[in-house]
Amino acid sequence: MEFSDRLNALATKVQNQKSAIQTEEATKNAFIMPFISSILGYDVFNPLEVVPEFTADVGLKKGEKIDYAILRDGEVQILLECKASVGNLKFEHASQLFRYFAVTNARIAVLTNGEVYQFFTDLDRPNRMDEKPFLVLDLSDIDESIVPELRKLTKENFDLDSVISAAEELKYVGAIKRAIGEQFKEPTDDWVRFFTTRVYEGAFTQKVREQFSTLVAKAGKQYLSDQVNDRLKTALGATGYTPAPVSESATAVASEPIAEKDLDRDTEVDTTLEELEGYQIVKAIACSEVKPPRIVHRDAKSYFAILLDDNNRKPIARLHFNGLKQKYLGLFDDAKVETKHPLESLDDIYRHANAIREAVRRYRG
Rank of each mutant, 00 (worst) to 15 (best):
M1H: 14
S4D: 07
V14T: 03
Q15R: 06
N29W: 04
A30C: 10
P34Q: 08
F35H: 15
F35D: 01
I36N: 05
F45A: 13
A56S: 03
V58E: 00
K62E: 15
I66Y: 02
Y68N: 00
I70E: 04
D73N: 08
D73F: 07
K83C: 01
S85K: 12
L89S: 01
L89N: 13
A102F: 12
N105L: 12
A109W: 04
L111A: 00
L111D: 00
V116S: 10
F120V: 10
L139P: 04
S140D: 14
I142C: 01
E144H: 10
E144M: 09
S145D: 09
V147P: 01
P148A: 07
D159K: 11
S162I: 13
L170T: 02
G181N: 03
E182A: 08
T188P: 04
D190K: 14
D190L: 12
E201A: 10
G202I: 01
F204R: 04
Q211A: 14
S213F: 08
A217T: 13
G220N: 03
Q222H: 06
Y223H: 15
S225K: 05
V228W: 03
R231E: 09
K233E: 10
A238C: 10
Y241S: 15
E248G: 08
A254K: 13
A254S: 03
K261A: 12
D262I: 08
D262S: 09
D262Y: 07
L263D: 08
D264N: 15
T272S: 15
L273E: 08
L273N: 15
E274Q: 04
L276M: 10
E277W: 05
E277V: 14
Q280V: 05
I281P: 04
V282F: 11
V290I: 11
D299V: 12
S302Q: 03
L308Y: 04
N312R: 08
K314Q: 08
N322Y: 05
Q326K: 12
L329N: 01
D334V: 03
E338V: 15
L346W: 03
R351P: 10
N354Y: 05
A355D: 08
R357N: 11
R361N: 05
